[in-house]
Write a protein that binds this DNA or RNA. Structure first.
Lengths: 206, 206
DNA sequence: CGAAAACCGCACCTGCGGTACAGTAAATCG
DNA sequence: CGATTTACTGTACCGCAGGTGCGGTTTTCG
């Protein structure tokens, strides 16, 4: 009852690394099973087809990412009472985390799937969509708290600002991968931080 | 000497649309030739293999994108003498252009290739890299001009700021495609615009 | 010990990328 | 106009990957 899950997650580890490194289409089942030391039958015992593997990977990826964001920004808020400064610390921590990845961020599974759309079924696409919307909601909540206390120098929609966090990460990852420069993603996160720092300003007494 | 080029570019049109819609791996040569009304032999007469098609598509994509940026920001600068306000107008125009795309931005070929890495050879990857670097250079030049005249509220690296333009577009495209919401990309471009507006401020006399 | 769970082995089918090569229609140029 | 490229068509074939089917075997756990 346990060895099965172990093998399954080993397959998923190998598959995720391969898919992020060279794309979904370029990752063959054969090379996965070879590295995992199992047979084709063994693979299809765990996953009905390649799409099922993709879905399992995405679900795991999203939950790990959620936990990461939760932990990071929760810890940041503990370091500073103020919602704005807490969030800024969170972004700093995020940037440092990304900078510590030895070969740069390996890639975002959601973006991988987004650029391989029709290889997947409706379920996988809706999963991606829901994850993006949940991130919007998450950061929107943080910005709502900040906006309660601070004035804004520019009248921007807080949903768009929340999306900017995801967009910055996604854009930074694409650039980091394309340029083969691990620094770009952390830099871009700090640029976002700079914007948020400038955008919110002490409330003026009226 | 002309009909050949015509067929070739028709193949490329069909291929580009298909690749952006469903990824490179999911786009078969067979469906391309079917839609183009030619045979497999005809396809391989124009392109030695799938990688050659990818390379040709990328080259065309980059040059079109370059022309687009050139035209757009040149025109914007004509509308306003000031480098900052000219650039802000350029971003506004870019946002409007993206908003006018009926089904949202179809996707960036460079990002597509970045998430399908090993499907392509070194040449294609270097082409992507050079394009990204040229965009950095392009926007860096614009920001240099702005920085000559304006103070900055936050001391950020102008290369990172230049990269932010590309990153915003890439991130916005990923989000627009994932959420199936054409508005996200133009919104994110306007967020970038808001940042640049806040970042640069009238030079104080010393 | 016995029954699931977790595989292995093998055969086989399909579709796709790609090759090879001979033949042909159409455009172009002297 | 005639000859030569250019731009294809048609056919046959190869190898690989995804995927199916199913019978057999080992491992694990209650």
């Amino acid at each position: 009852m346990k060895k099965g899950q172990e093998t399954k997650s080993r397959i998923m580890d190998i598959a995720e690394a391969a898919i992020l490194a060279k794309g979904f289409g370029a990752t063959s089942i054969e090379e996965i099973i070879e590295e995992a030391g199992i047979t084709k039958s063994g693979f299809f015992y765990h996953f009905s087809d390649k799409n099922a593997l993709a879905k399992a990977l995405l679900e795991r990826y999203i939950s790990i990412e959620d936990e990461l964001f939760d932990g990071l920004f929760d810890r940041a808020q503990e370091l500073h009472d103020d919602p704005l400064h807490g969030f800024l610390i969170g972004l700093k921590l995020l940037s440092e985390l990304m900078a510590d990845l030895p070969n740069g961020h390996p890639g975002c599974l959601i973006a991988t799937y987004c650029y391989n759309e029709r290889l997947f079924d409706k379920e996988v696409r809706e999963l991606s969509q829901r994850a993006m919307l949940s991130w919007r909601k998450r950061f929107r909540k943080a910005f709502d708290k900040i906006a309660e206390k601070y004035d804004m120098r520019d009248d921007v929609d807080l949903d768009h600002l929340a999306d900017m966090v995801s967009a910055t990460c996604e854009g930074g990852i694409v650039m980091t991968k394309t340029l083969r420069d691990p620094d770009v993603l952390p830099q871009q996160i700090l640029m976002l931080r700079s914007y948020i720092k400038l955008l919110f300003t002490e409330r003026k007494p009226n």
